[in-house]
Amino acid sequence: MLQYTVRRILLAIPTLLGVAVLIFFMLRVVPGDIVELKLRGDGAAVSAETLQVERVRLGLDKPLSSQFADWMIGLVTLDFGKSMWTGNPVAHEIAIRLELSFEVAILATVIAVLLALPLGTIAALYKDTWIDYVVRVLAIAGLAVPSFWLGMLFILALLVYFAWLPPITFTPIYQDPWANLAQMILPALSVGYRYSAVATRMTRSSVLEVLKEDYIRTARAKGVFERLVVARHAIRNALLPVITVIGLEFAFLIGGLVVTEQVFNLNGIGKLFVQSVTRSDYTMIQALVMLVAFIFVVVNVAIDLLYARLDPRIRYQ
C-alpha cells in the first residue's frame, strides 16, 4: 500500500508541471502583451515610457527564459509573487479567503452526499415507478438550474417569508457557529444542488448496474433479506464510481463558487478569481489556476488511494 501511495503521488507531479508550463505560456503567447492590454485596453493614450516602466515593475522586461525560471522557482518555494493589483503577496490574498470558500465547499459536499446516496439508491430500487421519475426529473433539473439564480431565489424567499437578509460580514465558525452556519447554508445549498444532482444520477445508474450482478442473484437465491442484499451487497459495490464523482465534483466546486459568491457577496476564492480576471491581475490568475489544479490533483490522488483501500484488486495491479 505504501509503495502504491508513493507511486500515485509521484504520478501527480507531471500534471502539475504541465499546468504550470501551460498557464505560463498561455499568458505570454497572447498577441499584444499584458501591460498593453491592461493600460491601453480601453483605448487610453499611454506613452511607451509608462508601458516600459510598468513592464520593469512587473518583471516583464526580462527574457522569457528567466521569467520562466522565476515562475518555476517561485512554485517550488511557494512564492507566487505579488498581486499586480493590490501589491500584496498573492499567497496572503488567497490565504485570507480560503477558509470561507473551503467551508462552503465542505457544507455543499455534505448536503450533496446526504441527498444523493439515499435518493439515488431509492430511485434505482424503484426503477420506472413515480419515485424514480421524480428523482430523475429533480436530478436533471439540478444540472439545468444556474446556481446563481437559485441563490437569488433563496435570498428572495428569505426576504419575503422571514424578512431576513444574510449578513454582509463574515463570521468565522469558531466565533459563532450558528451565525456562521446561517450565513453559509444558503450558498452551500445553491452550489450543492447541482453537485447532488450529478451524484444522484451516478448513484442511481451505479446501483442499477450492480443489481444485475451474479452475486446479487446468488444472495437473493440463498434467501438473504432484500434489505441486507441492498445494504451489504449492492450499495457497497456501487459506491466506487459514486466516490469518484463526489471527489471530482468537489475539486470542481470552485466553478460553482465563482458565481455563487458573487450573489451572496462572499469574499472568497471564487470572487477573487472573477476580480482578478476583470482587473487583468495575471500573477493572481496564475496562482489561482495552480491552486485549482493542485486541489484537482490532490483529490484525484485521494480518490485513487481510497479505491485501493476499498478494493484490494487495484492495489496489486
Partner: peptide, 8 residues
Amino acid sequence: LLSFPIIV
C-alpha cells in the same frame, strides 16, 4: 486542460 472546471 481537463484538470480545470469549465468556467475556470
